[in-house]
Each structure stands twice: as C-alpha cells, then as structure tokens.
Design a protein around this nucleic acid. Structure first.
Length: 494
DNA sequence: CGGATTTGACCAGCGC
DNA sequence: GCGCTGGTCAAATCCG
C-alpha cells in the first residue's frame, strides 16, 4: 500500500551508474518519515558553471490522481551556477506507510535518478566544453581578423595617397574600388559644370554625402556630426584620398535578405521613400528610401522583393549615417558600416581581402561564413547577408527578421554577381581555417538546436562578439544600449 | 496643413 | 549615337 510500482517511478529513464553520485545519493537519501529531505552534492568546480537548469521529473504523471497517498510526487534536481552543487529535494508526504519500504524504493529510485543526472551532466559538460571552445575560437578569429583590418586600413591610408596624387592610371590595371572612387569624383564636376539644362543638384543630399569625413586612422567618428569642412578630422589622409574613400564608402553596399511579409524590415531608422522603379528581371518594384533622421544623412536603402520568392525581402543599404542613432538602429548601422569599411579596405591594391571573399565575409560577420557573401563586381561592391538560409544562424540575428526559414541562397542575385560565392563554395574555396570556422559554426548552431534553453545566452555571447548588439528591428527589440565593440573602426559612422 | 508617398520625367553610365 | 537601365528629382497627390 502506498508506494507505486518502481517501473512507474523510473519513468523509463535509462541508467548510467556513477559510483560517486550513486554513493552520495545513497548516503544522502535516507529519509525521515513525514519530512522533506533535501540533499546537496558539491561537484568539483568545473564546467558546470555555464549552465543552470532545473530538471523536474514527475514519476506519476497522469496516474498520480489515482493514488491515495502519493509518496514521491516529484524529484526536483537543480544544478546551480554559483555553488556548483546539485540539490535534490525529495518531497515526501506523510503516508503512514512502512518507512523501510519507502527507503528501499527511494534508494533504488535515487540510483536511477543519479544515473540519469549523471548522464545529463555528462552531456551538458561535453556540450559546454565544445561550445566554450567554439566561442573562444570565434573570439580568437575575430581578434586576428580585426587586427588585420586595422593593419590593412592603415596601410591603405598610406598607400592610396601617392597613388591618387600621381593619377595612377598608367598601369591600366582595373582597380575596381578606386575606380569607383574616381568615378564618383569625376561625377562631381559633371554635376557642377553641366550646361544650364542640367538640374542644380547642389542642395541634393548626394553632394552632402560626398563630404562625409573619414577619420584618418580608420576609427569612426561615431555619433558625431559631420564637420563643415571635410578633412578637419584627418591627420594624414589627403583630400583626394579622402574623397576617394568617401565615394567608395558611399558606393559600398550591404544587401540583407530576409523573410518578411512587411513591406520593409524595421531597422530602427526613419526612412522616406523618394522613388520607385521597376527593375529589369523582377516584376516587383524596387523602392528607394533615404534616411530622414538627420538632414543630409547620406544613407539610402533599396527595398525589393525577390522575384523567385516574394516572401524574401532584399534590403540594400548604402552609406553611413552622419548622426546619432537610436540603440535599435545601431546594430544594423554597424553591420552596414562594417561592410562598407571592409569593402573600402578591399580597395587597397592587391588586397587579400579583395581577392578573398571569405575573408571579408568572415571579417564582417565572423560567425557567418554561411551567411555572408561578398560581391566586388561593378558597379558597387556589395556584401550580401542572407538571413533566410539558416534558422539556427538566424537565431543570432533574430530581432530584425520576424520570420525565417531555410531557403536556398541567392536565387536572384544577378545584379550583385561577380565574386559572390555561395556558402558551400565559400567553404570549398576558403582555406582550412574558413572550413574549420564554418564547421564550428555549424556545430554551434546544432548545439543551440539541441538545447533551446541555452540559445539566449549563447546568442548574446556571440552577438557581443559579432558586432556589439542585436541586429535589432527597431520597434521590436525593446531597446539595447549595446554599442559596437571598440575598435570596429567604422569610418564616418554615426 | 505639413509631412509622406506616388509617379512621371530627367540624368548618367554602359553596352552595342 | 542610340537605346536601355538604374538612380534621383520634384510636382502632384494622399493622409493623419
């Protein structure tokens, strides 16, 4: 009477006896009748600190109601982060039944539970170790790449000046990005010196955009208003170089593919539509927006649905904000700005970055080897972030994307063709490190899938590595003060 | 009424 | 030179 059959208590759990735990439990699970017993097991400080979870096992489930005297309703197993202990609270009702029977059954039950706990802990330990290793690797890779970026940008700042000043055209070699810069420079006189029939575009934000100042050391002027005289902030970059950088920055683009039924993804900024065109090869019109958070902000974006999958919204950003951004907008601005910076870096002749798209992709989004691609083709160098590809990857970037599902990449990217590579290509072509990183990220996402409870913490950790905050969707992020990590080096970014 | 959107026109770049 | 295309402008219109 009183005690249910053991098989019900075990609940079909597999056992994996552990002498340490089992012995401890046998020792501690000596129950006093009519009282609640609580046992604590202190584990050696180790990897359990990463996790804190509660495992509740109800051995009676639906049958509990049929019992007159539920002797062991539940076992509450807790692994705490702080004291690294496991507490088992075994609640016993005063049933008046034979205590020794209860003890025996509870001993057996305890062994079962210990085994289950031990198996779970072992799994959690392995998972934790794996994830920590991945995180450290990602962090390490990020730091290495970041140092490379800084070095390259500094080198470029020194090298591009004499090239531009000498008019570096004698070699005839195509320099995609510097050509873009020169092209934009060439546009300048055409705007001002065209015949009277041409419109006076002087008040156009375009011209303002071309005055964006880039700090000479590559560090951003984040949050600062653009000075009236471009170049005031420059230490050693001459005006021509500055203009070339400006033009390139303005032309560099970041394309974000995301599934959304909304006409436009929310990125925290205010936009005003200034045009709409039917683009060739796509029945869906392309809308043109410009940032209206500050007068003269050069940032523009194009929004267009994918021709082959209209649930995919393709948003292409161009330029850097010249005004402070709300927290909700910082993440997206940081991403686009970082992409522009990387493409600017790629403008350096013989740049490894230009020749190695995976380098750029991993630099911009260190964990996104399967998400980011680079197109250095004319007319504009473009980074494409595909947020439709991997639901797991998207957990890291979920805020701006209401819904995401697995999707084949780049179904309609003819406009941004060129060096663009699909994720598999990227992994094939990249050095072993690239493949390794991709593998690690796959493992990370798999681990996240395996343990949804761990998603938030890991996502936050990786997000902090990626770019200092969620790619927030403005209205749905709830506000996040995270700033881009120091040293991102966003040129002229607000 | 002021701001946002729509929409036709204009312009520049590019390829043939 | 011409046509095509992408990008932008600005007047007209819409909307809160």
């Amino acid at each position: 009477m009183g005690s249910p059959p053991m098989e019900k208590r075990r609940g079909g759990l597999t056992l994996d006896p552990n002498p340490f735990l089992a012995g401890a439990l046998e020792r501690k699970l000596s129950l006093d009748s009519g009282s609640a017993a609580s046992s604590a097991f202190v584990f050696p400080p180790s990897r359990y600190e990463e996790r804190s979870f509660v495992c509740e096992m109800d051995f009676f489930s639906g049958e509990r109601s049929g019992l007159e005297t539920p002797s062991v309703p539940s076992l509450d197993l807790k692994i705490k982060k702080d004291d690294l202990s496991i507490n088992t609270g075994l609640q016993l009702a005063n049933t008046g039944s034979d205590h020794s029977t209860v003890e025996e059954e509870d001993d057996k039950e305890g062994k079962c539970e210990v085994a289950v706990m031990e198996a779970e802990l072992r799994r959690a330990t392995e998972e934790n170790q794996r994830l920590r290793g991945m995180l450290s690797q990602v962090t390490s890779n990020y730091n290495k790449l970041h140092m490379q970026i800084i070095s390259i940008m500094q080198q470029r700042s020194h090298q591009i000046i004499p090239q531009i000043q000498q008019g570096e055209e004698e070699d005839g070699m195509p320099r995609r990005f510097t050509d873009v810069g020169r092209g934009a420079e060439a546009d300048e006189p055409s705007h001002s010196s065209t015949d009277g029939s041409s419109r006076d575009r002087s008040p156009s934000p375009m011209n303002n955009a071309e005055k964006v100042t880039i700090a000479g050391d590559g560090s951003g002027v984040f949050g600062e208003e653009r000075p009236e005289k471009p170049g005031k902030l420059l230490n050693f970059v001459s005006k021509p170089a500055d203009q070339a950088q400006e033009a390139t920055m303005r032309k560099a683009r970041v394309s974000v593919r995301a599934r959304s039924e909304a006409p436009m993804i929310s990125d925290g900024c205010q936009w005003r539509k200034y045009g709409q065109k039917m683009a060739k090869g796509n029945p869906c019109p392309r809308a043109y927006y410009r940032c209206t958070m500050a007068a003269g902000c050069p940032v523009r974006k194009q929004v267009q649905r994918c021709a082959e999958d209209r649930s995919i919204l393709i948003t292409t950003y161009e330029g850097n904000h010249n005004h402070p951004l709300p927290p909700a907008a910082i993440a997206m601005a940081s991403t686009t700005s970082a992409a522009a910076s990387m493409l600017l870096t790629g403008s350096m002749p013989s740049s490894d970055a230009l020749m190695n798209p995976s380098f750029l992709a991993r630099t911009i989004l260190p964990c996104s080897a399967t998400m980011a691609t680079i197109s250095a083709s004319a007319p504009f160098p473009t980074v494409t972030l595909d947020l439709t590809q991997s639901p797991n990857s998207l957990q890291l970037l979920r805020p701006p994307v209401p819904q995401v599902f697995g999707q084949t990449m780049y179904s309609n990217q003819s406009k941004f063709s060129g060096l663009q590579m699909s994720a598999p290509d990227l992994e094939k072509a990249g050095p072993p490190a690239a493949r390794s990183l991709a593998d690690k990220m796959s493992a990370v996402t798999a681990a996240i899938t395996a343990d949804p409870n761990f998603t938030a913490a890991l996502a936050a950790a990786i997000k902090s590595i990626i770019g200092g905050g969620p790619l927030s969707g403005g209205n749905d992020s709830g506000g996040n003060d995270m700033s881009p990590p120091a040293g991102w080096g966003f040129p002229a970014t607000s």
